[in-house]
Design a binder for these strands. Sequence first.
DNA 1: TCCACTATCGAACAACCTGTTCGGTTATGA
DNA 2: TCATAACCGAACAGGTTGTTCGATAGTGGA
Lengths: 173, 173
Amino acid sequence: MVQEALVALILEKGYDAVTVTDIIDRADVGRSTFYSHFVDKQDVLFSNLDELGFLHLAPPARSGELFTFSLPMFEHVRERWPLVQALLGRRGGVGLVHARGEQLLTAVVRDELVAAGARVSASLDLLVMCVVGAFMGLLRAWVDGETTASPSELDAAFRAAVEPGVRAVLGQE
Amino acid sequence: MVQEALVALILEKGYDAVTVTDIIDRADVGRSTFYSHFVDKQDVLFSNLDELGFLHLAPPARSGELFTFSLPMFEHVRERWPLVQALLGRRGGVGLVHARGEQLLTAVVRDELVAAGARVSASLDLLVMCVVGAFMGLLRAWVDGETTASPSELDAAFRAAVEPGVRAVLGQE
DNA sequence: TCCACTATCGAACAACCTGTTCGGTTATGA
DNA sequence: TCATAACCGAACAGGTTGTTCGATAGTGGA
């Protein structure tokens, strides 16, 4: 109830404007009960994030194919639309959740590129940052309603933008 | 004095933890004086952002060359390092400033691609989101100290990641 | 059924932060 | 010299946070 209340309130007022009093009022929960389960407003946000399982999508690392996480992740997001909107959108607790998402995705992308033969180096890290940035940017714009594209269209756009560059870098090694 | 105080405090405690009382204390300014010049804590943040002039870099649109904004912007950022760190870094007022930066950059990139012959369409917008995301991701990671690369190395990494994909899309039209 | 245990409630509280008001003080500049 | 503007800081009301505490309601085993 508390988690759902926070999501609803974020979508109405934005994360910053939501107070603990708002949450317990909406969730119909006593104040002391709230603080016996959660440390913070932020704690509720993160409990939602954990439940979402942003990293349930470890890529099976097929031969030759890059960025296998992309399409499944877009589809997973569509299934949990309001929740992701509250977590990742501009009205949400942007900084923190976005940071956590970037962190998880960075590890996935980096492993994938290394598996594809990339040499571990500082310039690989820069490449990974670009790829992750492109994906997160697309995702953020999507949940904020800046595009109405489907998951497969988003996946195609993501691949079209970054795959040629990545393959060119991989080819040089 | 107020602007500098906010920047210093953000780098120490993070934007959220900074209070107006902290700012006026650090800046040695009376409370009423603060509120006669600024509406908000956020107002101070934005006044800093305006002063930085994030969009002073309208590209001269040379023939054939893409993303002319990239290198000058990385260099500009290096000249105002602590300020940009406070504005754009994870400790800063991430959501708002990052959003404003994305917005400005989106217009720049979109115009550049259209000038280079891209057809205006929904898929162009998706491409622009990827390019902007990659650039902002790189910038954010840089100011947060996740890489020690130089502006020209960052520029090279950005171009290597996205230019092949963009040119491939442009070539199809 | 009885009882111990646990979860919940809600009122009250201190501490803090915000944004405003107001009377007094200081600087500016014509 | 003096009118104007800027500044100061104390005080204030209103709101938020996180804690405490005694009372109430539900749970599961003996």
